[in-house]
Simulated assay, not measured.
Amino acid sequence: MTGPSWRERLKPLELVGMAAVLGVFAGVIAVIGTRSIEIAVILAGIAFIAALLVLAMLALAAGDPGDGTDDRPVLEREKPPRRRK
Score class of each variant (00 low, 15 high):
Ala20Phe: 04
Val28Ile: 04
Val28Cys: 03
Ile32Pro: 01
Ile32Phe: 11
Ala19Asp: 05
Val31Lys: 14
Ile37Tyr: 02
Ile32Lys: 10
Ala26Gln: 07
Gly45Val: 15
Phe48Ser: 00
Ala26His: 08
Glu38Pro: 05
Arg35Gly: 06
Thr34Trp: 12
Phe25Thr: 15
Ile42Cys: 14
Ala30Ile: 05
Phe48Tyr: 06
Val21Tyr: 13
Ser36Lys: 09
Val28Glu: 01
Ile39Phe: 10
Val31Tyr: 11
Ile32Ala: 03
Gly45Pro: 09
Val21Ala: 10
Ile49Gly: 15
Ile49Asp: 15
Val41Asp: 09
Arg35Pro: 02
Ile49Val: 13
Gly33Gln: 06
Ala19Pro: 09
Ser36Asn: 11
Ile46Val: 11
Ile42Arg: 12
Ala44Asn: 13
Ile49Trp: 11
Ala40Gln: 05
Thr34Lys: 05
Gly23Tyr: 00
Thr34Phe: 12
Met18Ser: 10
Ile39Pro: 14
Ala20Leu: 13
Gly27Arg: 01
Phe25Asn: 14
Ala19Trp: 01
Phe25Arg: 12
Ala47Ser: 07
Val31Glu: 14
Gly27Glu: 01
Ala47Asn: 09
Gly45Ala: 14
Ile32Tyr: 06
Leu22His: 07
Arg35Trp: 04
Ile37Arg: 06
Ala26Phe: 06
Gly45Asn: 08
Ala40Lys: 08
Leu43Gln: 07
Gly33Val: 02
Glu38His: 13
Val21Ser: 07
Ala26Ser: 04
